[in-house]
């Protein structure tokens, strides 16, 4: 046990080192690769502080999907990247450095002298778990206690997607997102692009299924599904859907609409907005989580795919 602090210290230094690299790397692509490593290392950090739910999310979104989003941008912007980076003046950098150091020191002081005993809602959260027929308190917070946050956050995702779509040219509106996929001539790549998705889909569904009692959930499962879909689209194995397609829109909104319908149904069956009836909370929670996983997967996939840049026919 005495060795654990050493492990944690090494991990913390490694995370800071990689963050530093991401900040100072000369080429954007190199910085992005550093960032992918950063996201994965944060997954280790979260495992170290026993937040498995967050670790799953961070590894999937931070290292995985965000990483790929930035990789693509770096690859596309590379041809015109200015060779020597235009740097602001030394005085400016020193001043900013001092400011940031003050922020860090302020936070460090707060970390070093925390409120004692630490406030916690863990007991309150645990109290209602049996009534909700859930074992995972994080799921309970997301889907019950703070359901409004989760619902509004689904709308945030939708707005982000509308924002991404809005950046396409008028003439392609309603068409296929992104440019034409890569022509894959590499058999190893095809193999990988065919191999990973089935594994990922099983894993994603497992994460959703296990989330009632174990770490996991709609976010984690949805992200893994999204990653697999993105891979299949990138390798040209699956054509992206036309953004004007009614079926796609319905799929995209299915989780949000179900959530809202269940929310308003609460007025009738459980005495209030987003209340769950005592008789069958788990059934309703699953009813929300399944389409929500799909919504998250589809939205994340489309967010990475970008605005419509091709017509439906192409």
């Amino acid at each position: 046990m005495t060795l654990l602090p050493l492990y944690y210290g090494l991990l913390a230094l490694l995370v800071i080192g990689v963050a530093w690299w991401t900040l100072v790397a000369r080429e954007t692509m190199a910085a992005v690769i550093g960032f992918i490593a950063y996201g994965m290392l944060l997954g280790l950090v979260w495992a170290g502080i026993a937040s498995v739910d967050v670790a799953l999310t961070e590894a999937a979104i931070g290292g995985g999907v965000t990483g790929v989003l930035l990789l693509r941008a770096a690859a596309r912007l590379r041809p015109t990247e200015p060779a020597p980076h235009e740097k602001p003046g030394l005085v400016f950098r020193v001043l900013v450095g001092i400011f940031c150091a003050i922020v860090t020191i302020g936070l460090a002081v707060v970390v070093l002298f925390p409120t004692d005993p630490a406030p916690s809602l863990a007991i309150a959260a645990a109290e209602h778990l049996p009534a909700l027929e859930l074992g995972n308190p994080v799921t309970a917070v997301l889907i019950a206690y703070r359901a409004l946050d989760t619902m509004l956050e689904k709308v945030v995702l939708l707005l982000a997607l509308i924002g991404v779509w809005s950046l396409g040219p008028d003439r392609n509106w309603g068409g296929l997102p992104g440019r034409a996929p890569a022509v894959v001539t590499d058999s190893a790549l095809t193999f990988l692009a065919k191999l990973l998705p089935p594994i990922g889909i099983v894993f994603g569904v497992y994460l959703l299924w296990t989330s009632a009692d174990n770490p996991g959930g709609a976010f984690q499962g949805g992200t893994v599904l999204a990653a697999m879909w993105i891979l299949a689209m990138m390798a040209g194995l699956r054509a992206p859907p036309a953004i004007g397609s009614r079926a796609l829109r319905l799929l995209l909104l299915s989780g949000t609409i179900t959530f809202i319908v269940v929310g308003f149904a609460g007025f009738l069956i459980a005495g209030g907005f987003l209340s769950y009836p005592a008789a069958f909370p788990k059934a309703l929670i699953l009813l929300i989580e399944i389409p929500m996983t799909l919504t998250i997967a589809v939205t994340l996939g489309l967010l990475v795919s970008g605005p419509a840049e091709r017509d439906k026919t192409s």
Binding site: S51, P119, A125, A126
Partner: peptide, 23 residues
């Protein structure tokens, strides 16, 4: 983590906030 109680490894509320925040 500091708010670990009730047999959980951590206070679930901030964990849920982080998941929302990451997305």
């Amino acid at each position: 983590r500091r708010g670990a109680a009730a047999g959980f490894g951590g206070d679930p509320v901030p964990q849920a906030l982080v998941i929302t925040g990451i997305v």
